[in-house]
């Protein structure tokens, strides 16, 4: 019998042994997998929430704008000139011109109040339009809005612009970048803390599993099993823990995000739902979770078994 065959025999046996340990000590495996699942779930959930939060804020950010309303007397060409001027400013991302007619059309579409609609009809019959033409300005970053607002209130525009609606959004705009930054930092810190906790908890659980099996290690040593032979089944077992936990986590994530989606929709802006995010990032999440899970299981096993390998 040559060494290669022996090696393969041992590889097969340790794999079988690892699987056997995994399904034989049912409760212990269940406990370990549960703890790992919970840890992975918290990590993945943190990731999803941070991503969702980021997307949500991005969405708000995209919807934030300043509108400058022009006096009815201002000619369209003058407004378009100002539009050009504004478009040359680097901090401004886009400027959209909404004529009085467009504004009226939009307003009519957005309201369903019959009183308002009939009032508007009255105006129209007289060839009048109560709405003002406007430029809707979007900045490249939220912190620029204040400067843009100041620019629009310069004396040179005083005869053209009747009103800048920045003030009513001011509260939101002012805090936007702050909120985004705080959320990211908080999410990452929480994520890091949870990962650290997960590592410790999983390590301890695996250690308990190993402790329960210490006599087996002793016997293995006494009958002349090499350290690698003692170690391999546990490593495989750690791998199985990781795979099982990752699988459970994915199911749990799918369920929670699916059932949370309708609840979250009410508060969310636009159409961001955790479930859509989950589906969108499924590949990433699955790979990451399988990777973290199996690595966590195997490293924990490797460390936990060390004390029983005094040779």
């Amino acid at each position: 019998m040559n060494r290669i065959t022996t090696r393969f025999i041992k590889l097969g046996r340790t794999l079988r042994e690892g699987f056997r340990n995994f399904h034989r000590d049912g409760w212990l495996s269940f406990a370990t997998v549960s703890v790992m699942t919970l840890s992975l779930y918290i990590i993945a959930m943190t990731f999803l929430l941070v991503t969702a939060g980021g997307a949500l804020l991005k969405n708000i950010q995209d919807n934030v704008s300043i509108s400058a309303y022009f006096y009815p007397s201002v000619a369209e060409s003058r407004i378009l000139d100002i539009k050009k001027e504004l478009e040359d400013i680097v901090e401004i991302k886009s400027v959209v011109y909404i004529s009085r007619e467009d504004a009226l059309k939009e307003f009519k579409e957005s309201t369903s109040d019959p009183l308002i609609l009939s009032a508007l009809d009255e105006f129209e019959k007289e060839g009048d339009n109560p709405l003002l033409a406007s430029l809707v300005i979007k900045a490249t970053a939220p912190e620029h809005y204040e400067d843009i607002a100041k620019l629009l209130s310069l004396p040179k525009y005083a005869d053209d612009i009747s009103e800048v609606n920045f003030s009513k959004n001011q509260g939101v705009i002012g805090q936007l970048s702050h909120i985004i930054n705080v959320t990211r930092t908080l999410g990452m810190t929480l994520g890091a803390i949870f990962i650290a906790i997960a590592v410790l908890v999983v390590y301890n659980t695996v250690r308990i599993t190993m402790f329960a099996r210490r006599q087996e290690f002793e016997i293995m040593r006494l009958v002349g099993a090499s350290n690698l032979y003692v170690r391999l089944p546990s490593l495989y077992e750690g791998f199985f823990y990781g795979v099982a936990a990752a699988f459970m986590t994915l199911i749990l994530l799918a369920l929670t995000t699916y059932f949370l989606a309708p609840i979250a929709e009410g508060v969310a802006f636009g159409n961001i739902s955790l479930f859509t995010l989950f589906v969108h990032y499924l590949g990433h999440i699955a790979v990451t979770i399988f990777f973290i899970g199996t690595l966590l299981g195997m490293i924990s096993s490797a460390i936990a078994i060390r004390r029983y390998l005094k040779a």
Partner: peptide
């Protein structure tokens, strides 16, 4: 058998 298994006996 265990004692033989760990040695890689066929």
């Amino acid at each position: 058998a265990y004692a033989l298994e760990v040695q890689g006996a066929p």
